[in-house]
């Protein structure tokens, strides 16, 4: 009988070890998200709604897929995620979806994330922060079989 519980991570292989290794490698190297942020950045805040409607799916996917890899390569930069609970449709429309980059000198940069795909968000984020792409050889990967 197929389980009715939705999988936390889809499209992973079925083997006991291959599944785990694939999951670990996705943390260290999600496609094109292995970036090293400059040391002038002090913290990153992400704000979006709890539900997908009104263009909030992109930020959610960005958080679930890309952000672990960004955190993995920048372990000293605190990243906070705030998800807002909205009650009415009006509120949902007004709810902002933003990514704030806080610099050590108090400067702030904002990116609006509404109605954007996670890949688009990542591209914009990399451009604005002038982050360097980590070389393929420097990314730790686990090999199995």
């Amino acid at each position: 009988m197929a389980s009715t519980v939705p999988k936390m991570f889809k499209n992973l292989p079925n083997g006991r070890f291959t599944k785990q290794v694939a999951r670990l490698n996705l943390i260290s190297n999600y496609p094109s998200s292995a970036i090293k942020l400059p040391s002038t950045i002090s913290s990153i805040d992400l704000i979006f709604k709890r539900t997908n409607s009104a263009g909030h799916m992109g930020p959610r996917k960005f958080w679930r897929n890309n952000l672990p890899t960004v955190q993995f390569h920048n372990p000293n930069i605190p990243i906070t995620v705030t998800r807002i609970e909205t009650e009415s449709k009006d509120e949902s429309e007004k709810c902002p979806a933003t990514l704030t980059i806080n610099y050590q000198d108090g400067q702030k940069k904002l990116i609006d994330l509404k109605y954007k795909h996670s890949d688009e968000i990542l591209k914009e984020f990399t451009e604005i922060t002038q982050a360097q792409v980590v070389e393929e050889n420097d990314i730790p990967t686990i090999k199995y079989l």
């Binding site: 260290s28 958080w63 952000l67 672990p68 993995f72 372990p75 990243i79 995620v81």
Partner: peptide, 14 residues
């Protein structure tokens, strides 16, 4: 320490 690096990355934003 490496294990914790992976775990912390997976718990980002929690």
């Amino acid at each position: 320490p490496t294990a914790l690096r992976y775990i912390r990355a997976s718990e980002v934003g929690r």
